[in-house]
Design a protein around this nucleic acid. Structure first.
Length: 391
DNA sequence: TGAGTTTTGAT
DNA sequence: TCAAAACTC
């Protein structure tokens, strides 16, 4: 009896260290599938990156003797259609959190035959729990201590070949219409190349990652957001410093918050922060269009629009300006970032916006940012502001 | 460099 | 009881 498994790729678009791929290969035949689902939140810049990543993944799978089926529509329905067409008994899919992913996994589960494998985190949400009770950690530092001590999963073996049945036809994907002009190339190969470019020279990450003009951050976030790189492999890379690994832990932290609090993107995680916001549409529009008149803020927003990406320090400054100086609703800022970021990730975007707004996982929620002081500290020569000045 | 300022999570 | 992403002045 031949067993066939549908391997549903979601945001694990790689062949290295992919637990879902390894699990699917335990079946006799594998149907590699990606579903372009309009219900999955994204944006045109991330879509351009996604299409690159799918091309790269298809090429890798073809190199293993397989291929990639791409369908358009509702994911659960397409999975059922592909199962019916190929006689697949099983479905393998990586775990994930967030409203779309959680709902999808529930529907796949109820259809039966589902195997869920480790997802985008280094340490799965729910694996670490505070000893005093509770379903997730709400404070980072205790989480970091536990995360650092727990044993991470083993590397998932990469198959040397893929046995596929007769595959159903793919749908043609709508092209991306990115708004940014200077996007990174998507895909696993590009991600590994970026890692090899950055990691050997990343020893001063802890000292220099806040340097706006120095631009020394990893720029791995778009690859991590769609799983072109395995977060576990990046965090375990001997070339990266502990300061950077700590940032990787923040990613896991926010994912386990989102898993426990699915409404994170539009509902205050905790009370005590401001919950009355100004409704100044003119001010919001100025922020969105990089016309606040504050050079460091406008520079960050111009970088966002040009690259679909913003330096982390600039994210803090622009977000802090929106919520603390203008007094506007953090959800409007969250939505604008979500509409442009090539590295858009629900857990990180929402978690960090809530942190800035004082409604998130911060035990001292009343910190403010002084944009002049921030510019002086992190862009002392004004080189970042010059680079992204109005043309 | 250190105090301010505050509530609640983790042990 | 201790301590807490990113600060400010």
């Amino acid at each position: 009896m031949t067993r066939t498994a549908v391997l549903l790729f979601t945001r694990d678009l790689r062949v290295h260290d992919n637990p879902a791929l390894a699990a699917a290969c335990e079946a006799d035949r594998v149907v590699p599938l990606y579903v372009d689902d309009p219900g999955r939140a994204s944006n045109p810049n991330q879509r351009a990156f996604l299409l690159d990543a799918l091309d790269d993944l298809r090429e890798s799978l073809q190199g293993l003797g397989g291929d990639l089926v791409v369908r358009t529509g509702d994911t659960a329905e397409q999975v059922q259609a592909v199962r019916a067409a190929t006689g697949a008994e099983h479905v393998v899919c990586a775990s994930d959190a967030g409203r779309f992913a959680a709902g999808l996994l529930e529907r796949l589960e109820s259809a039966g035959g589902l195997r869920v494998t480790p997802g985008p985190a280094v340490v799965e949400p729910g694996r670490l729990l505070p000893s005093g009770g509770g379903d997730h950690y709400k404070v980072f530092t205790p989480y970091w201590r536990a995360w650092s001590q727990v044993r991470w999963r083993e590397t998932a073996p990469e198959p040397d070949r893929l046995r596929v049945p007769d595959l159903p036809a793919s749908d043609e994907l709508a092209p991306a219409e990115p708004t940014a002009t200077d996007l990174p190339a998507g895909g696993e190969r590009a991600g590994l190349a970026r890692l090899d470019e950055w990691a050997p020279d990343s020893g001063d990450y802890g000292d220099r990652h806040d340097d706006l003009a120095g631009d020394r951050t990893s720029r791995l976030s778009p690859y991590l957001a769609l799983g072109c790189l395995s977060a576990r492999e990046v965090a375990a890379d001997p070339r990266v410093s502990e300061d950077f690994v700590r940032q990787m832990c923040w990613r896991d932290f926010h994912l386990q918050v989102l898993a426990a609090f699915p409404a994170l993107a539009d509902t205050a995680y905790r009370n005590g922060g401001n919950d009355v916001w100004e409704a100044d549409l003119t001010a919001l529009e100025a922020w969105k269009t990089a016309s606040t008149g504050i050079d460091i803020v406008d520079a960050g927003m111009r970088q966002l629009h040009a690259e679909g990406w913003m330096h982390n320090r600039a994210r803090l400054i622009t977000a802090g300006y929106l919520v603390k100086t203008l007094g506007l609703d953090w959800r409007d800022g969250e939505a604008h970032f979500a509409a442009h970021l090539v590295d858009y990730d629900e857990a990180n975007n929402a978690g960090n916006w809530q942190w800035t707004a004082g409604t998130g996982n911060d035990t001292r929620p009343n910190r403010g940012f002084n944009h002049e002081r921030q510019a002086g500290r992190f862009d002392p020569e004004g080189a970042y502001r010059d680079r992204w000045s109005r043309t």
